[in-house]
Amino acid sequence: MSKIELSPDAKSSIVEKIQDYFESELAQEIGQFDAEFLLDFFTREVGAYYYNQGLYDARAIFEERLSTIDDDIYAIEKEVK
């Protein structure tokens, strides 16, 4: 699997969320560098789990839609005498 890459805007937004979380939930201040370091760690070590779950969810939707299309095709089948 290729490395998970976040856009600069997404990374910046997530870093802010990490900083806000540390401040509101843990009453600790975390700097931008430390928050980025933490984000990089989770992206590298945990990101694949979330990525794979997204694929599983997409696959389930695809299979559901494919089943519907299959049903629709059988519904328009003409009777042969």
Rank of each mutant, 00 (worst) to 15 (best):
L55A: 02
I61A: 10
E77W: 04
A75E: 14
F37S: 09
D34H: 06
A10H: 04
A35E: 00
Q19C: 02
V15T: 15
F42H: 08
S67N: 12
D34C: 06
I30S: 01
L66Q: 11
E16T: 07
E77I: 13
A35Y: 00
S24H: 10
L6W: 06
I4H: 04
S13Q: 09
Y51A: 03
E63P: 00
D57Y: 02
K11C: 07
D20R: 14
K81H: 09
G31W: 04
I14D: 01
E16S: 08
I18V: 15
T68Q: 11
F62C: 08
T43R: 03
L39W: 04
Y74C: 06
Y50T: 02
K11P: 01
D9C: 02
E79K: 14
S12A: 13
E16G: 01
I18F: 05
F62Q: 11
D71A: 15
D40M: 05
K3H: 08
A58R: 12
R59C: 05
Y49D: 10
S13E: 09
I4N: 01
T68Y: 07
K3A: 10
E64H: 08
L26Y: 13
Q32K: 12
G47M: 02
K3Q: 10
A48K: 05
F62A: 13
E29S: 13
V15W: 00
A48I: 08
I76R: 03
E25M: 13
E45A: 09
K17A: 12
D71M: 11
F22H: 09
Y74W: 13
A58F: 09
V80E: 14
F22G: 01
E79A: 14
E64F: 06
K78G: 09
I73E: 05
E64A: 15
I76S: 02
A10W: 03
D71N: 10
S7G: 06
A75G: 10
S2C: 05
I76C: 03
Q32M: 05
A27E: 11
A27Y: 14
F42S: 02
S67A: 15
R65H: 05
V80N: 10
D71V: 08
K81F: 14
E25R: 09
K78S: 13
Q53W: 04
I4L: 15
I14Q: 00
L26I: 10
V46S: 04
I73S: 00
L39G: 02
K81E: 14
E79G: 08
E63I: 13
I73M: 08
I30W: 00
A60K: 10
I4K: 01
L55F: 15
